[in-house]
Amino acid sequence: MNRTDATADPGGAERAWRGIAETSVLLDGFHAIKHALRFGASVPLALTSDRAAVLALADELAPDVRDALDALLVRVPDERLRALVPRLHPTAVAALAVRPSRAANLEALARTPRTAPVVVLDDPRNLGNAGAVIRLAAGFGATGVVTTGTLDPWHPTVVRGGAGLHFATAVERMDVAELPHGPVFALDAEGEDIRSLKLPDDAVLAFGSERSGLSERLRARADHLVSLPMRPQVSSYNLATSVGMALFHWSAGRPPGPGA
């Protein structure tokens, strides 16, 4: 459906949405759509109740994707949009994207030599935390984010927390035994202070769950146990904070510049 046809037939756009929603990735809000488009996501459909406002945001914040948005956006009445997307973002726009194939993500994660670490979340439980980690990993240019356990890293709440940046890095769920090649640096309070180490580009940085820490399987797989600096009597950091600290430590050993 091209833009002219969709604009003339918003009901057709709604039917198309319902037809592909269950097998697509929901991009909830302007920033999620902006990032997905920037990083090459296939976005077949975007709906809004206010085309002019969304395009004005693009003019102000993301002129690089303005033309793509203009071609995609279909205006539908607000109440009908909210029937399709009950938790509609305040920017009043949502889109559906094609999830990258598992095979493509696994290929990206397995490719060597790597120029940036892989982040592993060992049996995470909090969907919002997982999304925040993916956003961080994309910002640092990590090779990818892998989760173990039952949490789906492509759950709509995780994608919402990641602000569309799932498409900027490889995101997959894997078993501990399947983790990408590379030295595993597992974060643990009893480990060696991370400040004494240089993290290699092919590192696999593993973080335990918010509640129970590292699993025995992941701990057994670790080549190094490392700890983050922490004041005595402070029990832990938020998961995303821990990932950000570790990735910053890795990046601090690299020369500054684009993509560093």
Rank of each mutant, 00 (worst) to 15 (best):
A13W: 12
T143D: 02
S236I: 14
L57Y: 09
G12Y: 07
L239S: 10
R15V: 15
W17T: 01
H249T: 00
A108Y: 15
R111A: 13
V74Y: 10
R219I: 10
L106Q: 10
A83V: 02
L69C: 05
M1Y: 04
G131T: 00
T112E: 04
E210A: 03
A137F: 06
W17V: 04
R254A: 08
A189P: 03
G208C: 07
R217T: 14
E79L: 10
A53N: 11
D193I: 07
A206S: 09
T169A: 15
L57D: 12
V176Y: 08
L225T: 13
R3F: 14
L199M: 01
A53G: 12
V98K: 08
V119K: 14
A6I: 09
V25A: 00
A16V: 10
S251C: 11
L69I: 04
V119D: 04
L27Q: 04
A8E: 15
R231E: 03
L45M: 06
S212I: 11
A104I: 11
P183N: 03
P258L: 08
E190L: 09
V65T: 13
M230P: 11
M174S: 10
P124F: 07
A94R: 05
L72E: 04
A94N: 06
D122M: 13
A110T: 05
T147N: 03
A36N: 04
W17N: 01
A41L: 00
E22D: 15
H31A: 15
P256V: 12
D67K: 14
G128K: 11
A177H: 12
L81E: 00
T150C: 06
D122G: 13
A189M: 04
L72S: 05
P258S: 09
S236V: 14
L205A: 06
L197A: 03
D50T: 12
S209L: 06
G40I: 00
D28A: 05
P90C: 03
A46D: 00
V120D: 14
D122W: 12
R80H: 13
D175E: 11
A56S: 14
A56M: 08
E107H: 12
R99F: 00
S215T: 15
L151Q: 05
S212D: 14
E216Q: 14
S235C: 07
N129A: 04
L57C: 06
L121T: 07
H155S: 11
L109Y: 10
N238F: 11
F248P: 08
R82N: 03
A186T: 02
A142F: 01
